[in-house]
Design a protein around this nucleic acid. Structure first.
Lengths: 153, 153
DNA sequence: TGTCTGGTTGCGATTTTTTTACAACCGTCC
DNA sequence: GGACGGTTGTAAAAAAATCGCAACCAGACA
């Protein structure tokens, strides 16, 4: 179950953590406290955080974790399709563990990334000419511009 | 006029260069040999090159140009809407001077970016809820996956 | 055409972001 | 409980982007 924003409700966190453990085992990856903490931080964030931001968050609970481990774990998550790197036009990489089909708007001023929930976007059909040649693993609508907070300036 | 790929035909290069001169003047920017060379290299490329790649190309004609100038010029081009930074999920930034509405497929293995020309994608409508709050300056469909050349491996 | 002015360039140095190497460590399996 | 092999932390460096400044030159005007 999810709320109107499509975000998993709080009670589902335990379930997602369990599912994550299962994914790791399925992939032959060890379930370590660091990985659990990184995944949890990403799932709980609504900010589409960078590795640096996840690092800051995770460090509150595991002060000795290294940035490298956080970064490697995030890349691992996108490898096993437990999360993905958000499309966008600049560094640093930004991550998202919300696997429900949705889209993004990115403010080019404040770099904020806002979820866009819009049925018609979900239904776009990849043309056959592409589907025949390429294996499309991700399709999404990407919007860019100025957000409400930055527009006033 | 453009061919079936939407790419400007060769004979139009002079026109585009003239148009670029005009854009610079309109923006109060000086027309320098470096800027002309960078813009020309980007227009002539079909590779959606990175700053580094444009740098390598431009250096063939202007051996003493600095990377910094190339990079600054590319960012300038996107500022005046003569080009844009391509959406995508990793560094380095990739640029595109083809302003005709089109979309991209990016191969996550070889990082190649392929133009996607597909009418229905051009017609997607930004939902009112977004349009009311934000100023959308760019909207595009972004596809990601494995390209034909990488699939065999 | 010569001169002036302010934007532009090239350089060097820095910051930011990402990646690598490797020894110590610790989940997992038996 | 013990062994194996993947994982972690550390330090270092590679990759990418940015900054400050003196010399330079495109554009404007005489």
């Amino acid at each position: 179950m999810s709320d109107s924003n499509g975000r998993e409700s709080r009670g589902k966190l335990t379930e997602r953590m369990d599912a994550f453990r299962a994914m790791c085992r399925r992939e032959g990856l060890k379930v370590t406290p660091q990985r659990l903490a990184v995944y949890k931080a990403l799932v709980e964030s609504t900010e589409h955080p960078s590795a640096e931001a996840v690092f800051r968050q995770v460090r509150k609970n595991i002060p000795d974790i290294s940035f490298d481990t956080v970064n490697r774990t995030l890349l691992m998550l996108s490898n096993i399709d437990a999360a993905f790197v958000i499309e966008g036009t600049g560094s640093p990489k930004r991550f998202d563990a919300n696997l429900k089909t949705h889209h993004h708007f990115k403010c080019i001023k404040c770099k904020r990334i806002i979820d866009v929930w819009h049925e018609p976007f979900d239904k776009i059909q990849v043309p056959r000419s592409i589907e025949e040649k390429f294996t499309v693993s991700r399709k999404t609508v990407y919007l860019e511009g100025i957000c409400d907070k930055c527009r006033g300036k």
